[in-house]
Each structure stands twice: as structure tokens, then as C-alpha cells.
């Protein structure tokens, strides 16, 4: 029996190894291998706890000094060592929110097209092309956004928005100010392009998991494709779609390089989406390497901690929802 496992092992050669000894060695090897795999699995857990501990420890100084007001203050002054996180937090949430507002409908429509309308032979190539969008590194989006997209917006969309909404009371403050090109809106649009493939591919997967019988029954009643999608597919896959959207949101919240290039890095909250702003990740990326003084560094790490908690919560909810879908299908 064990000879099979030992072929090429210690039975070769003129030495005669007793069977029991060989068995013992195998058992030892088995245990060692088992523990190596188990320790590696535990290492994954330790990694996440390590991240949390390191961030908490690094941000302790800033959190002690500013306490709760760190979350509420808009001041960000490295010279006087005064730091408040509300502007980056606000920027992170607003850019992600606008990005989702754009990406969710488009992503769902593409998934609808891919699962219901698209001819079979085009489904795979189009699906792959959309997924390639997800593979492009975020710094590429950044450099493209800065040199191509932002100047384009500055000349077309932004003047149009200002001219169109400038005289309408509420909207005029939303689209106030000169067209800089870079700013909150540009960052949101780039984010929307970046999360689009995540939303598309997850919703496509859950749409495809809808039992054909359900759809066929609705078609049998004379429903149009849109009605089947709206009244049968969407309600059936609601949880999975929300999970996919949350996953995309998690990406958008933590996205760094693309946003850093185009948001303008201004520590203030402004009502206009055309004005420059900042996000948590952009602040860290821009300022960390040049941060002098322990308090400055600590404040930036505290920002990282906040970002981690926001994304952790969003991702945990997303995974939980998607897990529920998997269980129901499986």
C-alpha cells in the first residue's frame, strides 16, 4: 500500500526500510502538512486582525488629541497640527454616491442586455470586454481622467451644466462655480466607469441563475421582455443585485489613484459638484509620503482607519447578501 506513495522515496536503494518506520514517517508528514495548511488559513485571519490593530495603534495619537471632534471638524491644517476628517469623509461618500447613481442603472441595463437580448455568439465577447474594464489598473483611469477626460468635461459638460441649471434656484448651487475640469463630478464619473463592470458581472451572474421555467411561464402569459425582467427576474434576484451593488460601492469608497488624479485635493466641503474636493483615500495618497510630524501621520492613519471601517461594513453586508443568494441557489 504505502509503497505506492513511496515510489521514488526511501524504498529505492539497497537499504531496507522497515514498513512500520515508513508508515510513521508518512504519518508525520501528513500531520505536518495538515498543520501547515491550517496555520496558513489562520494567517489569513491574523492578517485582517493585524491590519485593524496596526491602524488603531497608528491613529491612537490623533484620536486621543482630537477625540470625537476629529470626525466633525473641517479644519485640516498641518502647520498648526489641527486635523478634522469631515471634508474627506464627505467627499468619499458624495463621490461614491454619485458614481453609484450613474453606474447602477447602466450596469443593470447591460446585464439585462447580456442575459435577455444579446445574440448568443456576442454574449461572451461583450462580457469579456466589460470585464476587461475591471482589469485596467486604477492609475490608468487616473492618467486618462487627468489628461483626456477632465479637459473634455471642462469644455463640454460642465459649461452646459452651468448654463442650463444656473438660473434654477436649488440646482444652481449644485452646479456653481467655474468649470475647472477636475473636481467632485469628474471623480464621480471616473468612479462610475470603474465600478460598472463589477455591477454588470455580478448582476449578470445572478440573472442567469433565475430558473428558466419562471421566465418561460411569464412569457407564456404574453409578457414582453422588459415585463419579464421587471416583474420576474428583478424581484427574484433582488438580494443578489443589492449584494453586487454593495460590492461595487465598497470598491468606489476605497478607490484611490483614479480619484487622486482628478479630484483636486481641496480640504473643504462645497455644495457644488464642480468644485474640487477630496476623499479619504486621495488625502492619504497625496499627503502621506510628505507628512512631517507624528501628529500629521497619525491623523492620516486615523483617516485610513475610518475608511477601513466604512468599507468593511459595506463589504461585509455585500458578502452576507451574496452568501444568502448562493445558499438559495445551491
Amino acid at each position: 500500500m504505502v509503497d505506492v506513495a513511496l515510489r521514488g522515496g526511501s524504498l529505492v536503494g539497497d537499504q531496507v526500510v522497515s514498513r512500520s518506520k515508513a508508515l510513521q514517517r508518512l504519518r508525520l508528514m501528513d500531520t505536518v502538512f495538515r498543520w501547515m495548511t491550517k496555520l496558513s488559513a489562520i494567517a489569513v485571519l491574523l492578517l485582517l486582525s493585524g491590519v485593524i490593530i496596526a491602524l488603531v495603534e497608528g491613529s491612537m495619537m490623533a484620536l486621543r488629541a482630537f477625540g470625537f471632534s476629529f470626525l466633525l471638524s473641517e479644519h485640516w491644517n498641518p502647520v498648526t497640527d489641527e486635523f478634522g476628517a469631515i471634508a474627506p469623509i464627505y467627499g468619499t461618500i458624495v463621490t461614491s454616491f454619485i458614481a453609484m447613481l450613474i453606474a447602477v442603472p447602466i450596469g443593470l441595463m447591460i446585464a439585462f442586455f447580456l442575459t435577455e437580448l444579446c445574440p448568443m455568439f456576442l454574449r461572451r465577447p461583450i462580457g469579456i470586454a466589460i470585464e476587461l474594464l475591471a482589469g485596467i489598473p486604477s492609475i490608468i483611469y487616473g492618467i486618462w481622467g487627468l489628461f483626456v477626460f477632465a479637459p473634455f468635461l471642462q469644455q463640454t459638460l460642465q459649461p452646459f451644466l452651468i448654463a442650463t441649471f444656473g438660473s434654477i434656484p436649488l440646482l444652481s448651487s449644485l452646479f456653481a462655480g467655474p468649470p475647472y475640469g477636475i473636481g467632485v463630478l469628474t471623480a464621480s464619473l471616473i468612479l462610475a466607469i470603474m465600478v460598472l463592470p463589477f455591477i454588470t458581472s455580478i448582476s449578470r451572474d445572478v440573472f442567469e441563475a433565475v430558473p428558466p421555467v419562471l421566465k418561460e411561464a411569464a412569457y407564456g402569459l404574453g409578457c414582453t421582455k422588459w415585463e419579464v425582467f421587471r416583474k420576474v427576474v428583478l424581484p427574484f434576484t433582488r438580494v443578489g443585485v443589492i449584494g453586487g451593488v454593495m460590492l461595487g460601492l465598497g470598491r468606489a469608497l476605497g478607490e484611490t489613484m483614479a480619484v487622486t488624479f482628478v479630484i483636486g485635493n481641496a480640504h473643504r466641503i462645497s455644495a457644488s459638484v464642480l468644485a474640487p474636493g477630496t476623499t479619504i483615500s486621495a488625502t492619504i495618497a497625496n499627503e502621506f509620503a510628505e507628512a512631517v510630524g507624528d501628529m500629521y501621520t497619525s491623523a492620516l492613519i486615523a483617516l485610513g482607519l475610518i475608511l477601513f471601517f466604512i468599507t468593511f461594513t459595506v463589504l461585509a453586508i455585500a458578502r452576507y447578501l451574496l452568501l444568502r443568494v448562493e445558499r438559495r441557489i445551491g
Partner: peptide, 15 residues
Amino acid sequence: NDILLSAPSIVIGLF
């Protein structure tokens, strides 16, 4: 692991 998979990479840098 799924959370690590989509955790913001800048946080990994800070860590």
C-alpha cells in the same frame, strides 16, 4: 478572505 479581496489597497499600504 473575501473582505481582504476587496479591501482598499491604500489601507494595506498603511498597514
